[in-house]
């Protein structure tokens, strides 16, 4: 055993230099040269350069005039994010979904899309399916007094259709477009 101590310590130190220092530094250097926006967290800045969020992280939106993202078990906390981890058999899950569904039925047609009453895994799911976004059109159109067609078109424009995954639309992108005056009749 004692004969193995020197190689143990020196190999660990060498691997730390290679895998723990050189490798992440190399990735960082290349990443910042080739994909600087993504490497820094896909931040969204306004005209003054202030950071308004990340394109990849859901934000909390209150009010009928905004697209609502998936519910978040951690209330859209980022440090640390989290999920409900409620079991399918847990009565608390059925109760929560029932309460949210009753509230939402008042805002749109029945049935309510599953995504709008279930919390995501990260609590920061930035996306909705196009169907779940469209389900919210009537409410938003009424709150903003704008034609539903405009919102239909907005959703279509922002829909991503990857070949190997479900079609999704980024909620923050939709709301950024709404905040832009072309779509909004309300003062921000």
């Amino acid at each position: 055993m004692f004969k193995q101590i020197r190689p143990a310590i020196s190999v660990l130190a060498l691997m730390t230099l290679i895998a723990g220092v050189a490798y992440p530094l190399a990735v960082t250097a290349i990443a910042h040269a080739v994909f600087p926006a993504q490497a820094n967290g896909s931040l969204i800045r306004d005209a003054e350069g202030a950071v308004r969020g990340s394109a990849l992280l859901a934000q909390r939106f209150d009010g009928a005039q905004w697209f609502q993202p998936r519910p978040s078990a951690a209330d859209y906390a980022t440090v640390a994010s989290g999920a409900s981890n409620l079991a399918p058999s847990n009565p608390a899950l059925a109760e929560r979904i029932s309460k949210d569904a009753q509230r939402l039925v008042g805002e749109g047609v029945s049935p309510v899309p599953m995504e709008l009453v279930t919390t995501s895994a990260s609590g920061l799911d930035p996306h909705l399916s196009p169907a779940a976004a469209r389900w919210q059109i009537a409410r938003i159109a009424a709150a903003r007094s704008i034609p539903a067609n405009n919102l239909e078109r907005l959703i279509d424009q922002h829909t991503e259709r990857p070949l190997v995954g479900p079609a999704v639309v980024n909620v923050l992108a939709l709301n950024l477009a709404l905040a832009d005056n072309r779509f909004s009749t309300e003062p921000e």
Binding site: L93, A101, T118, T119, S120, A121, P166
Partner: peptide, 19 residues
Amino acid sequence: ALAALPIEQVGSLEGKESR
């Protein structure tokens, strides 16, 4: 457990991401 609720009756998306 969710059969009677006014929601889409599909597999649960609780704890799953939309993308």
